[in-house]
Simulated scan of single mutants.
Amino acid sequence: MAYGAQSGGYFTKRAKGADLGEQLTARYANPANPANPANDARLAAAVELAERRGVSVNEVVLAYLTNQPDQTVPIFGGSSPEQVRESVKAATLTLSAAELAQLRVA
């Protein structure tokens, strides 16, 4: 079970240039410098893949989990019906081995 599968919206918010807030910054970045090199690389890979596939970054993040060789159940959340619908769409996104590797090594 992947609890916090969407990282509290970290990647989606970063992709949109939205404010991360104190809690997400403290958890996934550095309060003094919100850029985190490892997460920056992951974000760039997710954004590139989302644009190429015509899907959202959120769908890529969740599809990465559901496309693992072992059964993985991401626990996701949403603050609106649209966010829930978008998350559910990720279940139909099949990522290739090359796409999974692109996200894994980022």
Rank of each mutant, 00 (worst) to 15 (best):
A91N: 08
R104H: 09
E86C: 02
K89D: 06
E86Q: 06
P81H: 03
G78Y: 04
L103K: 03
A106V: 04
I75L: 14
L95Q: 13
I75T: 11
S87P: 12
S87Y: 09
F76L: 09
L103A: 07
A91I: 10
L103H: 02
T94C: 08
G77P: 14
A91E: 05
A91R: 08
S87K: 10
E99T: 07
E86H: 04
Q71L: 11
K89N: 07
I75S: 09
V73G: 06
V88Q: 00
Q102Y: 01
V88N: 00
A97L: 12
L93K: 02
E86N: 09
K89H: 09
A106W: 01
E86A: 06
E86R: 02
P81L: 08
I75V: 14
V88M: 09
V105P: 00
Q71S: 08
A97Q: 14
G77H: 13
T94L: 10
V88I: 13
A98W: 06
K89C: 06
P81F: 05
A98D: 15
A101P: 06
Q71M: 06
V88G: 00
G78I: 01
A98T: 14
G77N: 14
L95M: 14
Q83P: 13
I75P: 11
L95F: 12
A98K: 11
E82H: 02
T94W: 08
P81K: 01
S87A: 12
L103V: 03
I75W: 11
A91P: 02
G78S: 10
K89L: 05
I75F: 12
Q83W: 08
G77V: 13
E82N: 05
A91W: 06
P81N: 02
Q102H: 08
E82L: 03
R104D: 09
A91L: 14
Q71A: 13
Q71D: 11
S79Q: 08
L93E: 01
V73I: 15
P74F: 15
L93Y: 05
T92W: 00
A106T: 04
L95A: 15
G78P: 12
V105G: 06
Q83V: 13
T94A: 13
A90D: 08
S79V: 06
T92Y: 00
Q71T: 14
E82G: 04
V88L: 12
V73D: 08
P74Q: 11
S96A: 11
V84A: 07
A98I: 10
L93D: 00
A90E: 08
A90L: 12
T92C: 00
E82Q: 05
S79H: 07
L103G: 03
Q83E: 15
R104E: 09
L100P: 01
G77C: 14
A91H: 06
L100D: 04
T92H: 00
T94H: 15
A101Q: 13
S96E: 10
T92V: 00
V73T: 11
L103W: 01
T94N: 13
S79R: 07
S96V: 08
S96Y: 13
G78T: 08
T72P: 03
R85P: 02
L93P: 00
E99G: 07
F76I: 15
Q102T: 06
K89Q: 10
Q102A: 05
E99S: 06
L100V: 04
E86M: 03
L95R: 12
A90N: 09
T94Q: 15
T92G: 10
V105M: 04
P81G: 03
A90T: 04
V88Y: 00
A98G: 11
G77M: 13
